[in-house]
Design a protein around this nucleic acid. Structure first.
Lengths: 182, 182
DNA sequence: ACCTGAACACCGTTCAAGT
DNA sequence: ACCTGAACACCGTTCAAGT
């Protein structure tokens, strides 16, 4: 017993999220348990609850931390900007493939970074001339579904040539062509 | 104790799958446990293993059973046939929204009905003139990702007007237009 | 406020029996 | 071959205590 009750371990929310992310990257989703996170931090299982309300919240926060890596670059050409945003989102999600279906099951993320991406998407579509409310929501849904779905379907698959990326990009261009009708 | 060791309960694989499907429909994915299935069949928890190798296999079989409901109708117009196939797939998947992300996590289904759908998709694309191998795989991936992703993203959502369906159909038409290049 | 110890109510799965 | 009983190695989470 290296520590008595009442002694602190120096845990922070960041360290908890980092440990969870490492576990996910190294051993996959089934290995991401509260108890495993605690063990990796050399702490009692329930100590995690001082920094995170539940496992569900932990997963949400790990996901949102990953989404911080998405590159939102406003391009001169709105179509190119949209293409870049969705491609970057997919690339970032593929860092933690196991997380993506969970993401979908939660009906999309709701964290700060997810909102940032939603706002960026909205802005780019507006730049491209999609101003009608209904058309905006339709375009956003279609693009998000396709992009997240694309990341989810790759999973931890062994395919290592670029064919998956090319296929994704082809479909994305078709959707953009439809949205921007040309 | 209503039954002694050695006595049979009259279980079949079909009854097990049916109980699992009901549980899923009534109470959602978290309620789908081996023990709950057993309880619903008034049987000991481990009795299920006489009819199904694991929980993973159980889920796979429930999913494939659902896919049996997909309507594969060859139309005169190949584009319409493709549209109908994907729309029907989505509709059927929405009967068990919780299952769809699991489906994606498994990298798509591999059961008998999933293969049947894959073959139908291939045939319809060939009818539409998509003959090149690379183009075929690309088209299949894009359509499947979009359709499954669409079902996953709805989840148990409360939206009850037809806007989600219309949005799905719009995106699907854009993809088909790109695939059939017109 | 942050941590430990102990416990509760669950899981999936296995193994040895019984008929 | 199909089922029960009992057990194993896990889960997430809560509650009372310690500092």
């Amino acid at each position: 017993v290296p520590r008595h009750p009442g002694q602190r371990a120096g845990l922070t929310k960041e360290r908890v999220l980092a440990a969870a992310g490492e576990l996910l990257a190294e051993k996959g989703l089934p290995a991401l348990t509260m108890r495993a996170v605690a063990q990796r931090l050399a702490v009692a299982p329930n100590a995690i609850y001082s920094h995170v309300a539940s496992k569900s919240e932990l997963v949400d926060e790990v996901l949102d931390a990953v989404l911080a890596g998405v590159d939102v670059r406003r391009d001169a050409d709105p179509a190119e900007a949209l293409f870049g945003l969705m491609a970057s989102t997919r690339r970032v999600l593929l860092q933690h493939p196991d997380l993506v279906p969970v993401y979908l099951a939660r009906q999309g993320a709701h964290g700060a970074n997810a909102q940032r991406l939603g706002a960026a998407l909205h802005g780019m579509l507006a730049d491209a001339g999609v101003s009608d409310d209904e058309a905006q929501e339709e375009a956003r849904r279609v693009l998000i579904i396709y992009t997240i779905g694309s990341a989810a379907f790759v999973g931890g698959g062994p395919v290592r040539d670029g064919s998956l990326d090319r296929h994704f990009e082809a479909g994305l261009r078709w959707l953009l062509a439809g949205i921007l009708n040309r």
